[in-house]
Write a protein that binds this DNA or RNA. Structure first.
Length: 467
RNA sequence: GCGCCUCUAGCUCAAUGGCAGAGCAACGGACUCUUAAUCCGCAGGUUGGGGGUUCGAAUCCCCCGGGGCGCACCA
């Protein structure tokens, strides 16, 4: 291993140099001495001259070496693609007009022992791209831009929510009872306590306990884990934003979510009228609001609701090619019918509201119809992006809902919830009227980065281990 | 979990039953304004792994493994 320095003092980066000296004329030289560092992307040795393209986190700048001016010119001309170097010299523009650092001294900062692939075609093998993200990021500018956009998005979200008076909090990832969503959990074991714990499938219940505790506007951005299949839209660990606001209801959160998403689109894409997958998508508020019943009627041509006779719902679901189970009530049947006939065709943005209470065990019953919940999903680009509701605050009703879930669980539904006594006790201390919202950060990034695969927006997506 | 497709040099790809190849990278050399520099030279392989059919297999068949897409499940 070649000995390399422990530190290197930089005075400029590529973007800074372009900002400062971009206007130089071809062949013009300055007395501005800078030191830069980065990875060598291309080398063009030419006798007693040599040019190298240096990339740092901010962009690219050319290194220009001359045997007359450059220390160890021969070594410089032999740099390999991928080597990291630090270089110092004056800023000039070559006769051909390329902004360059005319290298006086340089030092190898890391040797690239492995070559990074074809300098023109890069690395396109999907497996390499995701197993060796460091190679992908080096080779593919688009990959770097997507992760950059993700970082900026999360930062903007935090700033915006803090501006609205929300408090960022952290709640446990290890849960004694998986709750807050219906999904199969990952199980782990704590040795000292000799007890199984579950990686959280949602932070929801803990966040509402913080509201009970008096934090009236809270949010958490964090990883949740669901032990389910992988797909272009599903990774076993993904990032959720959940936020809760006391004294607000689900209508307030429709406004909040459309404002939030369109703000992010404007900040990150320059417009709220974006395209996704080649298809136009106008995120400008207000988004369409429609009930599940209305949308199912639109899609199927016949009215359907939680009050439609169960036999008719069963028949229509079966006709649509859906599975029908005997223990499903009208709410579950309507939801299945909606998912089978309606959801896939929605492009959005649209808020689908008035979910059946039967399939919304943590949502408050609708003020006009107790069979419905004050719950909506925000469908954007054909996918569920947001799920929100007026929170169920009544501990007795919550206990009954948990018990119905536990019964479904006992009947074999592995995703149904269990009775969470800690949460019920918290509700007994009093949860004020509260609105809650969950938003999939990965999907939001996919939307604004216009990527079709969730793996593009996760630095290290879950892969089967190599053997 | 099931179905279809796919895996050849470090990277990007050829070779469809008959001698495993090219470009780039790497390595050696020439070149004082290059931009995927150019030019000359050299080297690089258990064709994902194992088995089978065949005179002969990267190519056909079977098993295993990785990956992609679809379905199922879900956000």
């Amino acid at each position: 291993m070649t000995e390399v320095p422990y530190r290197f003092e930089r005075s400029a980066d590529a973007a800074g140099l372009r900002a400062r000296h971009g206007e130089l004329g071809a062949g013009e030289e300055t007395d501005d001495r800078v030191s830069v560092a980065g990875r060598v992307m291309l080398v063009r040795p030419q006798g007693r001259l040599a040019f190298a393209t240096l990339r740092d986190a901010s962009g690219e700048v050319q290194l220009f070496a001359r045997s007359a001016d450059t220390e160890d010119f021969e070594g410089f001309a032999k740099l390999s693609l991928g080597d990291w170097v630090g270089a110092a010299g004056r800023v000039v523009k070559t006769r051909k007009g390329e902004l360059s650092v005319l290298v006086e001294s340089w030092t190898l900062l890391a040797e690239a022992r492995r070559s990074f692939g074809d300098k023109w075609k890069g690395v396109t093998d999907v497996e390499t791209r995701f197993r060796q993200r460091e190679v992908d990021l080096w080779a593919n500018d688009a990959s770097r831009r997507v992760l950059l956009l993700r970082s900026r998005l999360v930062s903007l979200l935090r700033r915006h929510l803090e501006g609205l008076g929300f408090l960022e909090v952290e709640t446990p990832m290890l849960h004694p009872i998986p709750g807050g969503a219906t999904a199969r959990p990952f199980v782990t074991h704590h040795n000292a306590l000799d007890t199984d714990l579950y990686l959280r499938i949602a932070p929801e219940l803990y966040l509402k306990r913080l509201v009970v505790g008096g934090f009236d506007k809270v949010f958490e951005i964090g990883r949740v884990f669901r032990n389910e299949g992988l797909s272009p839209r599903h990774n076993p660990e993904f990032t959720m934003l959940e936020l809760y606001e006391a004294y607000a209801d689900f209508g307030d959160f429709m406004s909040l979510s459309e404002t939030l998403v369109s703000m992010l689109a404007v900040e990150l894409c320059g417009t709220s009228a974006i395209t996704y997958g080649g298809r136009a998508l106008d995120l400008t508020p207000p988004w369409r609001r429609a009930t599940m019943a209305e949308l199912v009627e639109e899609a199927t041509g016949a009215p359907a609701s939680v009050h439609t006779p169960v036999e008719e719902l069963r028949r229509r679901l079966a006709d649509a090619g859906g599975e029908v189970r005997d223990d499903w009530g009208p709410g579950k049947l309507l939801l299945e019918l909606y998912e089978k006939t309606t959801e896939a065709a929605l492009w959005g943005p649209v808020f689908v509201s008035e979910f059946p209470a039967e399939v919304s065990p943590l949502a408050r019953r609708h003020r006009r119809d107790p069979e419905l919940a004050e719950r909506f999903e925000g469908i954007v680009a054909g996918r569920e992006l947001v799920n929100a509701f007026s929170e169920l605050v009544d501990p007795d009703d919550q206990r009954r809902r948990f018990e119905a879930q536990a019964a479904a669980r006992a009947a074999g539904d592995e995703e149904a919830m269990a009775v969470d006594e800690d949460y019920l006790r918290a509700l007994e201390y009093g949860l004020p009227p509260t609105a809650g919202l969950g938003l999939g950060i990965d999907r939001l990034v996919m939307l604004l980065a216009d990527t079709a695969n969730i793996r593009e927006v996760i630095a290290f997506p879950t892969l089967r281990p190599e053997r």
